[in-house]
Nucleic acid binder design. Sequence first.
DNA 1: CTGAAAGCGCTTACAG
DNA 2: CTGAAAGCGCTTACAG
Lengths: 336, 336
Amino acid sequence: MATIEDVAKAAGVSRSTVSYALSGKRSISPETRQRIDAAIKILKYTPNAGARALRTSQTSVLGLLVQFHDDEFAPAMLQYILPIADTARSLGYDILMMTEADGAEALTRTTESGMVDGLVLLDVTDDDPRLDALRAARQPSVLVGLPGNTRGLDVVDLDFEGAARTLVDHLHELGHRELILVTPPQHVYDRGGAYSWRFRDAAAQRAAALGIGLAVHCGESQQPAINQSWHDFLDGSPGATGLIVHNDASVAALPHVLHQRGIRVPDDLSVVSLYSQDFARWFSLPYTFVDSSPSMLGQLAVEQLARRIQASDHAGPHGTRLLSADLVDRDSTREV
Amino acid sequence: MATIEDVAKAAGVSRSTVSYALSGKRSISPETRQRIDAAIKILKYTPNAGARALRTSQTSVLGLLVQFHDDEFAPAMLQYILPIADTARSLGYDILMMTEADGAEALTRTTESGMVDGLVLLDVTDDDPRLDALRAARQPSVLVGLPGNTRGLDVVDLDFEGAARTLVDHLHELGHRELILVTPPQHVYDRGGAYSWRFRDAAAQRAAALGIGLAVHCGESQQPAINQSWHDFLDGSPGATGLIVHNDASVAALPHVLHQRGIRVPDDLSVVSLYSQDFARWFSLPYTFVDSSPSMLGQLAVEQLARRIQASDHAGPHGTRLLSADLVDRDSTREV
DNA sequence: CTGAAAGCGCTTACAG
DNA sequence: CTGAAAGCGCTTACAG
């Protein structure tokens, strides 16, 4: 591979001149610049990333920490990963993706060795075991998902409380007075996925304030338990006129279950949910929903991280940013 | 961050001794080793990745080139990415994931700058625009997916021809003589996704050889076109007793369509397909299938790539390896 | 069994 | 507007 020395020789200048021509940090005469550009093109010169990183302590690489759980509904994950990768690239960064179970180890390994300029953490839990290592790292980071203790951290997440209230209010305004809420499965609570109880508690509180009956159930994550649980929930609340679903695997199975039972939406039952546009498309889901906005969250996270990295004054964290979610009306609800 | 110099001082030895203690490339006295290990632990020393890469021209990073298409059924992608990341890590590599549209540029950028030791390419097409850049790169690589011209390349892919024959034979042995085949959507053919015609042509040839009638249709990739196309296909072949589906989005919608039409499987119709275990689980698909084995393919690809990277003799490519796929019988077929 | 030193390919303060 | 030189943190051939 060509080095900066090769380019300098070919262009008849010094290495420093080539370097400055590349960085634009000092003015170069037009003729010199032309010779350098020509040499770079001919030699197909690309600066060596390792040498640059060694010299500048900057890698132009962001670490992305993803956690996978066997019991998880994985299709949803990619919706976060792609916009993160795309936004990173548009800001000049590449993505080093780590999927191993021991996220804290991966975090330490890549930060201590200087492989990354910053980190994005996905699937953050209430008491996330990666946070101690994160606070000890010298690189900045952004979490997607709200942990219990946000001290010293940058966090981006959906406003799940607001989303829950939006959906309860929507059904309340249409006259519904008895609702069913299906939440994420039990293991999400157990694991500390705070979005599960943040949504649930806000929905319950709002329903209580509005005098609405709300039957709350943990949904399942695997067939055939999912379909069975649906039958149980529906049988258990024969008077319910509205259904709020906050559970990807369960809502994906819902059209089939409702069809089986001969329940028409919205004629017999009003249904609202919380998921993303892409998810709705993949699973052909026709329900009114609050957009979980994974691409917006991913984009915000990376933009915030890039800002932190480039902040010359080593400014402290920006804090927690909760994205308020919009209702997308798909006419799966009706007045009662 | 602590450097090797810090460790050397703390342990009262030279930098080279620390380096050799770390690499194990020469013997170190037990006392010295102990002092070094202690210093490393106290200082939390991790070698700087940039410096090591500069010196050794090895990064312990593999590039992963993923291509996304707006019209694609993205959930399937993650099944390849995860096992690749896991296998890489178990072999000591991290993954630099590139998702940008211009894969050739990403490839050149990361190889020329020495950011990666090797590359895995996903979604390889018949006339893949990344292959010229790939052949010019100094790092080895492995493709997942068979291109038209494999000269000088390492390829891992499913034996789609064998999979097609397995499925046709399975139905033939049960007495079926009139079948429907639903293939990937037209845009997959247009894009050069060779698996589409490899499967189709092998199925057609086998059916012809066995004297079976085979109605071949391109499936759709988006609702509501998917459901409509299913009705067209089924209406168009009222005498068909067996259905072969090679289309993720279409097969995901099939249970609902069959239920709508009151078609019972296998009583009224035998159904077989080609997809992965995870896919079947996510979409609750109950059909007999040939396992598309994404995790096996990802693992084989990375193992082969690691072998190429570590081959001291710069051995040439291993060639093309087609994984023969197994039939998983889920009792969605019956004798006719 | 251990050390001193060269050098990987950059960037940038210093000098002109 | 341009150049010579130091130094980032490693690894390894050379020397003992």
